[in-house]
Design a protein around this nucleic acid. Structure first.
Lengths: 227, 227
DNA sequence: GAAAAATCTTGACAGTCGTCAAGGAAACGG
DNA sequence: CCGTTTCCTTGACGACTGTCAAGATTTTTC
């Protein structure tokens, strides 16, 4: 009874075997074991993200996560070493889908003002549509101030978010024919502050939060460029 | 056996009886019962804040809080209705002592540049000296995105922090002979974003965090004023 | 189609949690 | 100094937690 549980190598295995299976059959779901293993991990993680976004890190127990999925509570430890392994996998998985959220507004922008408007609208849309995911993100980032085991993943994601924001700001600067007045780090910190503030107020069902955020972003962006 | 537990009225009682006892004796600790009751609440809250700052909201149990105090774990429910009542009292108590942190900076400032420098220094000092308290604050604010019962206190404290920041910004504008370019709300959001970012990095023991924050604040403040 | 491996379910474990009640200890009032 | 009120300790409760192991079930392999 040699258990599999190849947590570490599964990612690399998947890519290799994915190519092989793809060459074998045309479109049929011909899955290698490692592929299936990863697929289950992803399905479990996606279901877990839903529960985590509803309850937060502290209140989301493994049993509750499993109950809201199609699996039983024991299966979590078959695919993940422990709770932290699941959480980190979840948040990394989420990052991968979230980090290109603003690529469209960058690609489609033709004028500086148009970019700012589209960016502000997209931020508002994010708050409305993805509030649970983002409050989870802020929850985990706060937890990482206490739990060292979360820090590596949090810092890594923070870095990619900073780069995401910088793609917007630097494109905005180019379209304006001016130079940015801040570092990527500072630009991210400022915009993240406004976003977090608006998210909290939106969850508190305060009035005019979204319009105010739009206005704040439109007012801030020009300040990020040199005179 | 009519228990006391007058949670609500204790604050108003304290002020009234405080005056009476003050008129009675000069400086002796002549305590009325209600006064002592409030004093115990405060002592317990201060000890709890220490533990909360160490462990965070989720991991700080009432037993742990009591263990780090001079009381036993049962006494918590004598002075507080439940855990939430304790937490909210703690965070409100902390706010009262924290909200005037930058008043000295404002009062002593004679030039605009001097105010910015002193403000930036004070922010850095806060991160170094009060990191546990502030990560607790961010923890609770994140929790309030999930737990509605925390929101009232969080929003109220956020408001006072906004006013605290605005005292700095508006004084800075006056010393510069210019007008602020943002609302108090936006100014607080921006500075809070930078501060939170720096706090996390400081806890991760990253290099040059404090100098970078100082630099960022010095760069940001002029942007908050109209051209 | 049987043997083997992988996958999943179930139930239990050792802790910890918030809460509460019974009763002892101390302070108070007369 | 005694009765009463206030204060605090101790121990217990039910519920919940992450983790794991044994066994049933499914899938794969030859």
């Amino acid at each position: 009874m040699t258990s599999v549980k190849t947590f570490v190598v599964s990612a690399s295995q998947r890519s290799v075997e994915g190519v092989l299976s793809g060459a074998m059959t045309t479109a049929t779901a011909r899955r290698t074991p490692a592929d299936k293993h990863d697929e289950r991990r992803r399905a479990l993680a996606e279901s877990a993200l839903q529960t985590l976004g509803d309850l937060g890190y502290a209140r989301a127990s493994l049993r509750e996560i499993a109950n809201n999925s199609e699996f039983s509570h024991g299966v979590v430890h078959y695919y993940f070493r422990d709770k932290l392994d699941l959480i980190v996998y979840c948040v990394r998985h989420y990052k991968a889908t979230c980090v290109h959220r603003y690529d469209g507004v960058v690609a489609d922008a033709t004028t500086a003002d148009g970019l700012v408007a589209a960016f502000a609208d997209k931020l508002v849309e994010t708050i409305v549509d993805e509030a649970p995911m983002h409050r989870l993100w802020y929850d985990l980032r706060s937890q990482s101030m206490f739990e060292e085991s979360l820090r590596e993943a949090v810092l890594q994601i923070d870095q990619t978010l900073e780069e995401m924001i910088w793609r917007v700001v630097s494109t905005y600067a180019a379209l304006s024919g001016r130079e940015p007045a801040l570092t990527p780090h500072a630009a991210y910190g400022l915009l993240d502050g406004l976003f977090q503030q608006a998210l909290l107020e939106h969850l508190c069902e305060r009035e005019d939060v979204l319009d105010r955020l739009r206005e704040q972003v439109r007012g801030l962006m020009p300040m990020l460029l040199q005179a």
